[in-house]
């Protein structure tokens, strides 16, 4: 039986939403962070995410293991990443245009292959009950987190280490910051960028699998609400820092949970407006972090949008 928490239900639901809704943001933004650090932008991650959701669901359904589904989603993501990476390595090909084309291609293919997957039920990913100590069911529900959330946090920390302390991370930053310097020092440019885009694709694929295999936990054509696109803005907001990406993902997750939370405490009017909170937040953040005089701090200089 649900305890009556009154208005406390709202922050609790927002917290729960933060933990639950943030994971796709986190994965896409970490992947995009690596891609952008190499000097490319992949706007096609939205398509990769939707395709990943379909592939993950299908994979889990066919193999009976949700984790194999996640892996399948990641691998299809790699394919999309490689496609983007190779196309952009051709002379005079613009990464933003390719990204938009791949976004549409990914979504379209996902709907095409996913038609037969709407009915059957695939096995879901397990949850870690962090709220087991509490008697209040809403607290338990809010504190139920996916293992993928924890893995995402670990990846964020690992990326921070990679960027700072490892050769591969330093080469990545070099390629993204000054292709000229990297070339003069004899580091390869295109393989690094293609690899970074493939990693971004993998992460977006996994984010899609999270959507279909954990929360909301089903495959349909409205599975994504633009997480793949918002995450791109989120990387800029996080100034290309993986830990900041984690924070930003939590923030967007919380904002995304605001609408459903208000609805659950009985606000019947205007909650649709709160469903739009993440999008409004995106606009506000871009507005307030803009500066007329300062260039984007920490922006990889090879990025086509900051050049």
């Amino acid at each position: 039986m649900n305890a009556d928490l009154g208005l406390w239900a709202v922050p609790l639901a927002v917290l729960g939403g933060m933990l639950r809704v943030s994971t796709p943001f986190l994965f896409v933004s970490l992947g995009e962070c690596v891609t952008e650090k190499s000097g490319r932008i992949n706007l096609g991650l939205e398509g990769t995410l939707v395709f990943g959701a379909m592939a993950g669901y299908g994979g889990a359904y066919l193999t009976g293991s949700p984790w194999l589904g996640v892996l399948a989603a990641g691998l299809f993501g790699v394919l999309f990443g490689l496609l983007h990476g190779f196309l952009c390595s051709l002379p005079k090909v613009n990464d933003i245009a390719v990204g938009i084309a791949l976004m549409l291609l990914g979504t379209g293919l996902a709907f095409f292959f996913g038609k037969p997957l709407i009915q059957p039920a695939a096995p879901m990913l397990p949850a870690i009950p962090l709220g087991a100590w509490s008697d209040v069911p809403q607290v338990r529900a809010a504190l139920e987190v996916s293992p993928l959330f924890v893995i995402g946090l670990l990846i964020a920390i690992a990326l921070l280490f990679v960027f700072k302390r490892t050769k591969i991370g330093l080469v990545l930053r070099m390629v993204g910051d000054s292709a000229d310097a990297a070339r003069a020092m004899g580091y390869p440019i295109l393989p690094v960028r293609i690899g970074a885009t493939a990693f971004g694709g993998f992460m977006a694929g996994v984010a899609g699998a999270y959507l279909s295999l954990y929360y909301p936990g089903s495959w349909n054509e409205a599975i994504s609400s633009g997480q793949g696109l918002i995450a791109v803005a989120l990387v800029i907001f996080a100034r290309w820092n993986p830990l900041a990406c984690f924070g930003a993902a939590l923030l967007f997750g919380g904002a995304g949970a605001l609408g459903p939370a208000l609805q659950s405490v009985g606000v019947t009017e205007g909650y649709y407006l709160f469903y739009a909170a993440p999008y409004v937040l995106t606009l506000l953040i871009l507005f307030f972090t803009s500066s007329r005089t300062k260039a984007l701090e920490g922006a990889p200089r090879e990025l086509s949008i900051t050049k």
Partner: peptide, 23 residues
């Protein structure tokens, strides 16, 4: 041919032929 966002130290180390995989 220096990487603008990197420190002098990072630039010098990265210019070597044999950069260890963990620095």
């Amino acid at each position: 041919t220096l990487v603008p966002a990197m420190t002098v130290l990072e630039n010098l180390v990265m210019s070597r032929v044999d950069v260890p995989s963990v620095v």
